[in-house]
């Protein structure tokens, strides 16, 4: 893909420029990984900027590392460095940055964003068994999240790489509607089948850029243990329902939870359902603008309440 390599060169140029002038501490970007997924690179010297890549293996959401940096406590004797962090984001990842700014985790003055326009990346799970290396994005390899993506141009970017892509796709939530159309018994059977597979590796939690509680409820022992460690269905059900509620109205559908899930649980279908409902009921959408009020941090006198007596 000629387009991708041109963008790659631009990303490297910008990173090199920022690092050479010393205006950023380091740049978080993609580097070639083993297998069909890129890995995160932390480029600290201008000379290393050529490690950065851009191709359809860049599926991961790097804002996780930005958040970790923002929440990190300084080491003993470490002086705070006021310079911002540079980060390479796809449009979907840029929504995470917006959401993190909205939640006052990321100070916009402390981040410089290289935003790439994007027309989809490959799903590594769909490439299992094929030759390792960047594959073209085709209907067979494209990640599911990209087929319903409504944002092909980055938000909040200091530098935009790539030409503007027209927004064509309208998300009809058909994957969610499929489950909604089932009878309650079928829905329960479906989720029972899916969630009983969960091994509770907590991969979905660890990789989620918006799961950042200092102490996670699933780790708590004192004063009360909320969740047992067994992988039986009731505990798994509790875990996934609570996790979904914690992300209700915040999830920006970067699809990382589903990508890392070793048991292929359709976690996005839970998140997307609440995303859909929050939009229908309250007109809120995560990651649209940092000026928006948070879903559960705001309320309206006229919020629907048809089930309340």
């Amino acid at each position: 893909m000629p387009d991708a390599s041109a963008k790659e060169a631009q990303v490297r140029d910008i990173a090199r420029r920022w690092l050479a002038s010393g205006e950023v501490r380091y740049v978080i970007g993609y580097a070639a990984g083993r297998g069909n997924v890129a890995r995160a690179a932390f480029v600290r010297r201008a000379g290393d900027a050529d490690r950065l890549i851009w191709n359809p293996t860049c599926v991961n959401n790097l804002t996780l590392f930005l958040r970790e940096e923002m929440l990190r406590k300084l080491a003993k004797g470490e002086k705070p460095d006021p310079r911002p962090i540079g980060i390479v984001v796809k449009p979907c990842d840029s929504k995470t940055v917006v959401e993190l700014v909205k939640e006052h985790i990321v100070d916009p003055a402390r981040v410089r964003v290289i935003g790439l326009t994007c027309e989809g990346v490959c799903d590594p799970k769909k490439l299992v068994g094929t030759e390792v290396g960047p594959h073209a994005v085709t209907a067979d390899t494209i990640a599911d999240k990209c087929t319903v993506c409504r944002l092909h141009n980055p938000l909040m970017a200091d530098e935009v790489v790539g030409d503007e892509v027209p927004e064509t796709v309208e998300d009809d939530y058909s994957d969610v509607a499929e489950i909604e159309a089932m009878s309650p018994e079928e829905r329960w059977a479906y989720w029972e089948r899916q969630l009983s597979r969960c091994v509770r590796c907590y991969g979905c939690r660890e990789v989620c850029p918006l799961c950042y509680c200092a102490e996670c409820v699933f780790d708590r022992e004192k004063p009360y243990r909320w969740n047992e460690r067994t992988v039986q269905l009731p505990e798994n059900l509790w875990y996934h329902a609570v996790r979904a509620m914690h992300l209700a109205g915040r999830c920006i559908d970067c699809g990382e939870c589903e990508r890392v899930c070793p048991m292929d649980i359709p976690i996005r279908k839970l998140n997307r359902y609440l995303e859909k409902k929050a939009k229908e009921r309250y007109g809120v959408e995560a990651g649209r603008s940092a000026e928006d009020a948070p879903t559960f941090g705001s309320c309206d006198v006229d919020d629907p309440e048809e089930f309340i007596w």
Partner: peptide
């Protein structure tokens, strides 16, 4: 209670979606 209404309405929706008898959960004023 406005904040409660948002959270609990979405929880009610989620229970329905997961097939966990939403009728077992009720909010009233």
């Amino acid at each position: 209670n406005y904040h409660a209404r948002r959270k609990l309405t979405l929880l009610h929706d989620l229970m329905d979606y997961m097939g966990i008898d939403p009728g077992r959960f009720q909010v009233s004023w």
